[in-house]
Design a binder for these strands. Structure first.
Lengths: 113, 113
DNA sequence: TAAAATCATTCATATATTTGAATATTACTA
DNA sequence: TAGTAATATTCAAATATATGAATGATTTTA
């Protein structure tokens, strides 16, 4: 089940400010819908919509506590993803690998200016 | 400047089958456009479009070698992202953390069925 | 049982993304 | 210099996504 496609679907869903915030909160623990209302500046129906999207993708799930729906993280992929999103990459050098692999090029060294 | 947003932008771009393939190839080394044509089943203009999108987002860049454009990975975030996408998560347990944090709930233990 | 609290669903519209088709650009080569 | 190889750009149509508005469903409380 480690298919790339499901990971791509998850990436698509996480790449949204509201849903990323939701997942970050859930990575700290269980939360109900009205908890999210405290820090998300969107309407309750919209929050429910995002939760529904995440749930149908298998990223989160919930259990009932009285009249609350307590949501929690379900996909083990999410904590790792959140970790690298928060990681600081400033100062790390970009650039092509030292050994180029173009099939057609005559390139045999780093000719960049 | 908050690079949270730029990470979200990158996630959005990576969450596409063609662009993910392109980035995976680039993680192995420098590639020119016609190299991509060998394994991507989309048109050359479409490949160029995806490359352009990735380049404008600062994810990749290129240098010129004769009449080839040699593309390479620029964002240091990408290798880490590719690594967790390829990682196998099967068998890992989902579930809420042991310590719930709903503010409104009376919940004080794991009541799930 | 009526009211309130909590959350979900539906629908319509606005916006963004994706792709194919056609064409342009640039640098080599004969 | 004309031709060709390699790649980019533009545009339009199709598709997908996001959001607000209105309303529904359930459970608890008074």
């Amino acid at each position: 089940m480690n298919d790339f496609m499901s990971k791509i679907e998850i990436l698509k869903l996480v790449a949204h400010p509201a849903r990323l915030s939701i997942l970050e909160e859930l990575s700290k623990g269980v939360k109900c819908v009205s908890d999210f209302q405290e820090f998300l500046e969107i309407s309750q129906p919209n929050i429910s919509q995002h939760l529904s999207i995440l749930r149908h993708a298998g990223v989160i799930d919930y259990f009932i506590d009285g009249r609350l729906r307590c949501y929690f993280l379900k996909s083990p992929f999410i904590p790792d993803l959140l970790e690298i999103i928060k990681r600081d990459y400033t100062g790390q050098l970009p650039g092509p690998e030292c050994c180029p692999t173009t099939k057609k090029g005559k390139y045999h060294g780093d000719r960049r200016k």
